[in-house]
Design a protein around this nucleic acid. Structure first.
Lengths: 209, 209
DNA sequence: TAGATTGTTAATCGATTAACAATC
DNA sequence: TAGATTGTTAATCGATTAACAATC
């Protein structure tokens, strides 16, 4: 099974390749893709090996078939239905961000504490009350969820999602979720990221003069 | 200089410790913090060493002074002023998310292509036209910026920010920015993260049954 | 063919973990 | 004191990079 990081890079390669394809090119060399992705050609070749690469020494890789191979690796055959818990500002932005971006990955249900949101369509997604979570997750066959609730509620939400059958969580709350083995959690901690940027921006200045 | 990952963990430790402090505890052992942060006590001790740790074998670490030490490491003495380019849905959510969260890190200027936004206060931040970017960045002494524009515009925005004096960028566009040495870029690629979650959620199922 | 690139393995590098004397 | 934890270094692990024969 490919590593966490390899999968992440394959996802990046696909976005980059889609843009290249729209620009008109049909083939690409490993060092060209590496320059776009910000890594080495060695690594690109090794990553593409993981999905059964199709390059030739003279023309490089066929972009179309590369995108297809990456899709066969990353995408679920029938598409993946996703739930989002916490339909606030951040949740709404995430919904807007994903809308139509990946046809195989669609957010089909939103849940929120606020009862007034239940039954409505917000940011393009149908919203439900928290008490309907187990039923909706089960009926829709949802296995992936996004958590955009405050840190104080995130662990409880994660527990409920996992009980309902969710196997992968994208967590925006700035805590580490405690989950049983076999559950994949990816944390996106925006505050942490900005603090890192601020720190190293400062270092680069003090370092120079 | 501490590594990228160490700084990220210190930021996480600080959020976790602030929550603990509010809950009433005054001291914490490395293995307790490790459990909260999802890593090993060895690593916690090594990370805290980097900021001059203050633990004792009998009582562990004093939470208050730990939070202060982390602050002295992470925060700029006079606070850091941040700009955000792309005051759309995602940008607005980020602004709402940061509002009042870190007193030493405040977004003080928003920039957008949309001329109608210039001069207004949106999501709590004063907005400017793109042509005012060099002047505002310079006058306000801004060294850190957040990019929440579409991928097609991100590189151009980054170039402008760097020319204006920005040294660190938090990039939400799904491309890798090309930047000169000494500029720190942190990528937050939400689509990539969700694709990773979907992939490993699926693997955990096929692996088990 | 000559030359550049691919697929793939070996070498390197860095980060994490394990270990342990010192300490409260 | 005995016992657990700290600060710190050595061992381990995994990921990245370099190298190179095979290929177009």
């Amino acid at each position: 099974m490919p590593s966490d990081k390899t999968i992440g890079r394959l996802s990046l390669y696909r976005s980059l390749l889609s843009r290249i394809l729209r620009a008109g090119d049909s083939h690409i060399f490993s060092h060209e893709l590496a320059a776009l992705a910000g890594n080495t050609s060695s690594q690109v070749r090794r990553d593409l090996m993981a999905i059964g690469s199709n390059g030739t020494p003279t023309r490089g890789y066929d972009i179309r078939s590369l995108i297809q191979s990456i899709g066969e690796c990353l995408d679920a055959a029938g598409g993946e239905r996703v739930a989002l818990v916490g339909v606030g500002n951040l949740g709404g932005a995430i919904l807007g961000f994903f809308a139509g971006r990946r046809p195989k990955l669609s957010v089909v249900a939103g849940f929120d504490n606020d009862r007034d949101k239940a039954g409505r369509v917000l940011y393009g997604v149908r919203c439900y009350a928290m008490e309907d979570l187990p039923r909706v997750i089960d009926q829709q066959g949802i296995r992936v969820a996004v958590i955009t609730v405050p840190a104080s509620e995130a662990q409880d939400v994660a527990d409920r999602l996992i009980r309902a059958g969710v196997r992968g969580i994208l967590n925006f709350a700035p805590i580490r979720l405690r989950t049983p083995a076999g559950i994949y959690v990816e944390d996106v901690d925006v505050t942490m990221s900005l603090e890192k940027v601020a720190f190293f921006a400062r270092q680069s200045l003090t370092h120079k003069g």
